[in-house]
């Protein structure tokens, strides 16, 4: 049952080690400066333990368990999207069908039917939802609604399901297995957020898009891109079937698209004048706040890998 490929196993140990380091540093920090409030930092790290814990347990149990987990994440993200973005009361039943696309899409993943997986949402759901809207017959705000609903399903179901599809691809690097691909993508995406933040804090001067995110700088972005490309270059051959060169490119892709995903969701929140998309993950905000970069990196990384190796 628990035959984890060795490279993936070591990668998991390293991630848990990093978490342990974070927790210990937090404790030391709290002891050194007892008068400072570290509640948010504590919540953030605790939530990381939960998220990574749940992910690893599902990955270890079986690919099916992990696919169900990603389906559930899609559900939470779609629900959060529909909750914060205004939709018409008349669209309730359309939204219901949008939710129904989740089990179907992830079923297609689980049976590995690539041709259908890749067109189900962009073609069938895309055409069916407006038809359901027409049957309801409310034309006021029709265009706005049709656009919002399909965008939501694309981002939260279609994009996120690409992570799950990594698990059913034929295994080309048996030392890492399919778990290696998922860990590589998730780790590089989250590590990219961290790197861009740290480089921005250290050197940040020139604002990159002040209207959307006043804290994002060119220095942070470029520092992140270079770091991620390098780390990815060395980590890629270990965890994925990609060679050093292609891993480097994958890193570039993940870093740039992660940045874009981050600012796209930021603009959405700015438009709605809210700070966080929810309160599901203490210290982080909502699930969209956590998955923002991932929604962009997953399909791009997936298709890069698919083009190069399959």
């Amino acid at each position: 049952m628990f035959n984890i490929p060795p490279h993936s196993f070591y990668a998991m140990l390293v991630v848990l080690g990093l978490l342990l380091t974070a927790s210990t540093s937090r404790l030391i920090l709290a002891r050194r400066k007892p008068d400072k409030d570290y509640t948010e930092l504590r919540q953030r790290i605790q939530s990381w333990w939960w998220m990574i814990g749940i992910l690893f347990v599902c990955l270890v149990i079986s690919p099916t368990a992990a696919i169900i987990l990603f389906a559930f994440i899609s559900f939470l993200a779609l629900k959060e999207f529909f909750s914060i973005v205004p939709t018409r009361q008349a669209d309730r039943r359309v939204l219901f069908w949008a939710y129904v696309s989740i089990p179907i899409q992830y079923y297609l993943v689980s049976i590995g039917w690539y041709g259908m997986f890749i067109i189900f949402i962009p073609v069938y759901v895309f055409l069916l939802l407006p038809m359901r809207m027409v049957l309801i017959g409310e034309t006021k705000g029709f265009i706005h609604s049709a656009g919002t609903i399909h965008w939501a399903v694309m981002l939260t179901v279609f994009c996120i399901s690409h992570i799950a599809y990594l698990l059913v691809l034929p295994i080309e690097n048996p030392e890492a297995g399919s778990i290696g691909l998922v860990i590589f993508l998730l780790f590089m995406t989250q590590f990219n957020d961290v790197c861009q933040y740290i480089w921005g804090k250290l050197l940040g001067k020139h604002k990159i898009i002040p209207k959307v995110s006043p804290n994002k700088t060119w220095e942070g972005f470029l520092g992140g891109v270079l770091t991620i490309a390098l780390v990815s270059g060395f980590l890629g051959p270990y965890l994925t079937p990609l060679t050093f060169r292609f891993s480097l490119l994958a890193g570039l892709l993940i870093s740039c698209s992660g940045f874009i995903g981050d600012v796209v969701i930021s603009s959405l929140k700015r438009d709605l004048e809210i700070k966080d998309s929810g309160t599901l993950i203490p210290g982080h905000g909502g699930i969209l706040d956590r998955c923002d970069s991932l929604m962009f990196t997953s399909p791009l990384f997936f298709h890069f890998l698919y083009y190069v190796n399959y």
């Binding site: 629900k79 529909f82 909750s83 309730r92 039943r93 219901f96 939710y99 929810g278």
Partner: peptide, 18 residues
């Protein structure tokens, strides 16, 4: 938000955060 999830006179519950 609950009025969207299950308004008066509707039997179909649609998931929403509230």
């Amino acid at each position: 938000g609950l009025g969207r999830a299950l308004p008066r006179g509707e039997a179909l519950l649609v998931p929403f955060n509230c």
